[in-house]
C-alpha cells in the first residue's frame, strides 16, 4: 500500500513538474523529437541498405562455362568437387539448351541468329552461389584452376563496388545512430538537471524531513520517462506515415527492381517500438543520472 502511495505521488509530482517547467519540458521534448527523427531515418536507411545488400549478395553468382563436349561423368565429378569447396553454397547445372532458350527470349536478333545455326554454339555451365561475397574473387580463381573449365566469371567491378559502398554506408549510419542516442541522453539529462535545479530546495527539505532517496528520485525518473515518451510520439508518426508514403511513391524499389525497399509492415512497427524504448529509457536514465548529484546533502 505504501509503495502504491509513493508511486501515485511520484506520478502526480512528475506531471506537475512537466507542466510547471513547461518551457524547459518543451525544449527537452523538442530536442528528443529532432534526435529521434534522425535516429529513425538512420535506422530506416541502414536497415534498407542491409536488406538491399543481402538481396544483391544472394543474386551474385559465379557462372562457370565448361569446355566443349565434357563427358557426363566428368560433369558430375566437377559438380561434387565444387560443392565440397568451402565458400560454395549451391551449385546448379545449366546446359547449353537452357541458355539458348533464355537468349532467344531475351531478344529477337538472338533468336533469329540462333535459329540459323544448326549446332548450338553455347557452352554448358554451372551457376555457383557463394556463402560469403567477400571471398567471391578467391573462389572464382580456384574454380578457374579446374580441368574442363573454360572460364569462370562473376559481375566483377560494379557489384563488388556497390556492396562495399553499402557496407560503408551501413557502418556510418550505425555510428550516427549511436552518436544521436548519446546526444539525446545528454540533452534530456541536462534538461532534467535544470528542472531539478529549480526544485533543489524541495529535495533538500525532503532529505531533511526523512524522505528516502529512492522516493525522492521516483518523480524525476517518471518525469524523464514522460519527456522521452512525449518526444518519441512525433518521430513515430513520421516514421509510420512517412515510410509508407515513401514506399508507395517509389512503388517499393529505387532505380531498378533489384534495389527493393523493405516492406512497410511490420517494419515501421518495429522501428516505432525501438524509438519508443530509446526515448523512454534515455529519459529515465538521463534523469536518474541528474538527480543523483543532489542527493548528497
Amino acid at each position: 500500500m505504501k509503495m502504491f502511495r509513493y508511486l501515485k505521488r511520484g506520478l502526480r509530482d512528475s506531471f506537475k513538474s512537466v507542466f510547471r517547467n513547461f518551457s524547459l519540458s518543451v525544449a527537452a521534448v523538442a530536442c528528443s523529437i529532432i534526435t529521434l527523427i534522425l535516429v529513425a531515418v538512420s535506422i530506416i536507411v541502414s536497415y534498407n541498405v542491409d536488406s538491399i545488400t543481402k538481396t544483391l549478395e544472394s543474386e551474385l553468382t559465379i557462372v562457370v562455362y565448361l569446355k566443349k563436349d565434357v563427358p557426363d561423368e566428368q560433369i558430375e565429378n566437377l559438380k561434387s568437387s565444387f560443392v565440397k569447396m568451402k565458400n560454395v553454397e549451391e551449385v546448379e547445372f545449366k546446359d547449353n539448351e537452357e541458355w539458348k532458350l533464355e537468349m532467344k527470349e531475351y531478344s529477337e536478333t538472338y533468336s533469329t541468329t540462333l535459329d540459323y545455326l544448326e549446332e548450338n554454339p553455347l557452352l554448358d555451365s554451372f551457376i555457383v552461389k557463394v556463402k560469403d561475397v567477400n571471398y567471391l574473387k578467391e573462389t572464382t580463381d580456384a574454380i578457374r584452376e579446374f580441368e574442363y573449365v573454360e572460364s569462370a566469371n562473376y559481375g566483377e567491378g560494379m557489384a563488388e563496388n556497390l556492396i562495399s559502398a553499402f557496407s560503408i554506408i551501413e557502418k556510418v549510419t550505425i555510428f550516427i545512430v549511436l552518436a544521436l542516442v548519446f546526444v539525446t541522453a545528454f540533452l534530456i539529462s541536462n534538461t532534467i538537471k535544470l528542472t531539478i535545479f529549480s526544485r533543489r530546495n524541495e529535495i533538500e527539505i525532503m532529505r531533511l524531513v526523512g524522505t528516502s532517496n529512492s522516493t525522492i528520485k521516483l518523480p524525476f525518473v517518471f518525469e524523464g520517462f514522460i519527456l522521452g515518451f512525449l518526444g518519441s510520439i512525433i518521430p513515430i508518426l513520421i516514421t509510420i506515415y512517412g515510410y509508407v508514403l515513401l514506399y508507395d511513391h517509389f512503388n517499393g524499389y529505387i532505380l531498378s527492381p533489384i534495389i527493393t525497399l523493405v516492406k512497410p509492415f511490420n517494419f515501421v512497427i518495429y522501428v516505432s517500438v525501438i524509438l519508443l524504448v530509446i526515448g523512454c529509457v534515455i529519459g529515465m536514465f538521463g534523469s536518474y543520472r541528474a538527480v543523483r548529484k543532489y542527493l548528497k546533502i
Binding site: R207, L208, V209, G210, T211, S212, N213, L295, K296
Partner: peptide, 13 residues
C-alpha cells in the same frame, strides 16, 4: 548516505 532518512524521521529540525 542512503540510510540517513531513518535518522531524520526521528528528528525535527
Amino acid at each position: 548516505n542512503s540510510k540517513v532518512y531513518k535518522l531524520r524521521r526521528k528528528l525535527g529540525i
